[in-house]
Nucleic acid binder design. Structure first.
Lengths: 211, 211
DNA sequence: CGAGTACCGTAACGTACGGTACGGTACACC
DNA sequence: GGTGTACCGTACCGTACGTTACGGTACTCG
C-alpha cells in the first residue's frame, strides 16, 4: 500500500497508542490523536482491520537488512556477520515496538481471517531466516561451517540468540536486557554456534550431516 | 482457589471456547456452553477477569513435573533426563491448549492490572527453570557438566529445545512438529547441550566459567 | 468566481457484551 | 409442610465502540 506522509502520521499515532495502552487502539482514539476525522480513517484504510494491518505493515517493513559480505568470506568475517546478525535481531525483538506488534499479532492470530500474524511472521522470523541461510550456505561453501540442513542450522542459531527472551517479554516479564548484555549475548551465541557447526570442530551434536 | 467439580466443568467449557474461537470467550458464551447461569459465573468467579484467570490457572497448574534422579547420576541418566525434559516441554508448548493460553495471556499482558501473563510465566518458563536448574547443578556436582552460571546454562538449553517453534506457532504458522520430530529434536538438543557444556569437551563457546 | 475535492469535527446509530435483577425449580434441613 | 440455599434461564441495563452521516472549511482547478 502506497502511503502519503499524512497517512504515515496517522499510522504513527496508531502505533504510539498501541504501545501506550498495550492493546489495539479504538478508531476514536486514533482519530483524536492524529487530529483527523473518522471518516478519513475509513476512507483511507477501509475500517479497523485495515488500519491495524497498515500499522503493522508499516513497522514490519522497516526492519532493516544487514549487509552480508559475499566475497572473501573468511572465519573472521563470518563470525563478525553472525555476531552482527544476533545483535541486530536481539535489539529488534527486545524493542518496545516489536513487543507491542507481536502482542497484537499474536492476540489476533487465532481468529479466522486475521492476517496480522502472517505479516509479523513474514517480516520477523522468516525474514531473518531468508537473510541468514544464504550466509550460512556461503560459510559452508567456504569450508568454515559444517552442517547438513541449512534450515536446521538457522533454527539452532535462532535458539541460541533468542533463548527465552522473547516469550518472557511478551508475557510481561519486565526485565529487558541492556545494550551491554545484548552485545555479550550476541558474541556468546555466535561462539556457541561455531562450537556446534564450525568445520574445525568434532561433530559432537551427534546429528551432523544426517539430519 | 479451591474448585468444585461443577466449577471445573465450567472452566473446561471456557477453555474449549477459547481454543475454538481463538480469543477470550464472552460470559454469555461460557454460560450457554456450560449450561449455567451468568449469575452463578459472577458469584463463583467475581467477573470476567476472575473467570479467565481461573481458566488459565487451572490449566497452567496441571503441567506435570518430571521425576529427577538425584542419586547415582551418571552421564547416561543425565542425558536421559535432559531428553525427557526437552520432549516433555516441546509436547507442552506445541499443544493446542498451551498455544491458546499463551495467546490469551500475551494479548492481555500489555494491559495494566492483568495478571494472566504472570501466571503463564510462572507455570511455564519459570517452572521449567526451577525444575531444570537443580538437575544441571547436580550434573555439575557429579563432574558431568561444566558451566559457570546455571541460569545461563538453562537459557541455552531452552533455546536449543524451543528454537523458533513457539513464536511461530503463536503467530499462526500452522506447522506443528510431529511426535517423531519432537523426539528427534529432544535428542538433538540434549546432545548439543552436552557439546557445549559437557565436562569432557573443550570450552569452545568462549564464555565457560566466566559469565 | 463557482464547482469540485479533500479533509476536519461532531453527532448519531446499531450492536455486542459485561454486569445485574428476578422469577422458577430442585433439594436439604428443621 | 415450611424455610433456606443453590442454581438455571432469561430479561434487562449501561456503556463502549465500530461504523455511518453530515455540516463546515480550506484549497485547487477551470
Amino acid at each position: 500500500m502506497e502511503l502519503t506522509e499524512r497517512q504515515g502520521e496517522v499510522l504513527d499515532a496508531a502505533l504510539a497508542l498501541l504501545k501506550e495502552k498495550g492493546e489495539a487502539p479504538t478508531m476514536n482514539a486514533v482519530a483524536e490523536r492524529a487530529s483527523c476525522s473518522k471518516e478519513t480513517l475509513y476512507k483511507w484504510f477501509g475500517g479497523r482491520d485495515g488500519l491495524l494491518t497498515a500499522t503493522v505493515q508499516r513497522q514490519a517493513a522497516q526492519v532493516r537488512a544487514l549487509p552480508v559480505p559475499d566475497r572473501g568470506l573468511d572465519a573472521e568475517a563470518l563470525q563478525a556477520s553472525l555476531v552482527a546478525f544476533a545483535r541486530n535481531w536481539l535489539r529488534t525483538i527486545t524493542g518496545e515496538t516489536s513487543v507491542a506488534l507481536n502482542r497484537l499479532a499474536i492476540g489476533e492470530a487465532g481468529i479466522e481471517g486475521r492476517g496480522l500474524g502472517r505479516i509479523v511472521l513474514d517480516n520477523g522470523p522468516r525474514a531473518m531466516q531468508g537473510r541468514l541461510e544464504p550466509l550460512l550456505a556461503a560459510g559452508r561453501e567456504a569450508g568454515l561451517l559444517d552442517f547438513a540442513d541449512s534450515e536446521d542450522a538457522f533454527r539452532v542459531f535462532f535458539g541460541l540468540v533468542v533463548r527465552d527472551t522473547q516469550i518472557r517479554l511478551l508475557l510481561g516479564d519486565g526485565e529487558r536486557p541492556t545494550e551491554a548484555e545484548i552485545d555479550s549475548r550476541a558474541v556468546q551465541a555466535a561462539a556457541q554456534f561455531f562450537a556446534l557447526f564450525g568445520a574445525d570442530h568434532r561433530g559432537a551434536d551427534g546429528r551432523r550431516r544426517n539430519t
